[in-house]
């Protein structure tokens, strides 16, 4: 994952995958999606023990960020296992 000067720059990037169009997001929106316990509570003393409880929050935030696009979702089986 990288930061680009604009969407036009992403599309011009030599390694841009045209199937990743849904992967282009405003910086503020991505940053907001990271305001979830998996990211904000890394220094909590029970972080490792309760990792599994914190993962769904990030997945939900990314799903919302993607507006329901499969690009920002895990396949159902993988999500159930996480």
């Amino acid at each position: 994952m990288n930061l680009f000067r604009s969407e036009e720059h992403v599309r011009r990037w030599a390694k841009f995958d045209p199937e990743s169009t849904h992967g282009i997001k405003p910086v503020r929106e991505i940053a907001a999606a990271f305001n979830t316990p998996l990211i904000t509570e890394r220094l909590e003393p029970d972080y490792v023990r309760r990792l599994g409880e914190r993962i769904p929050g990030l997945l939900a935030a990314l799903d919302q960020l993607g507006g329901g696009s499969p690009f920002w979702q895990l396949p159902p089986t993988a999500e159930a296992d996480s």
């Binding site: 994952m1 990288n2 930061l3 680009f4 000067r5 604009s6 969407e7 992403v10 390694k15 841009f16 995958d17 990743s20 849904h22 992967g23 282009i24 997001k25 405003p26 910086v27 991505i30 997945l59 990314l62 499969p70 690009f71 920002w72 979702q73 895990l74 396949p75 993988a78």
Partner: peptide, 12 residues
Amino acid sequence: PEAVAHSNLPLA
């Protein structure tokens, strides 16, 4: 201000 973030691969 128009900078964006990009993932070249889907979350999966």
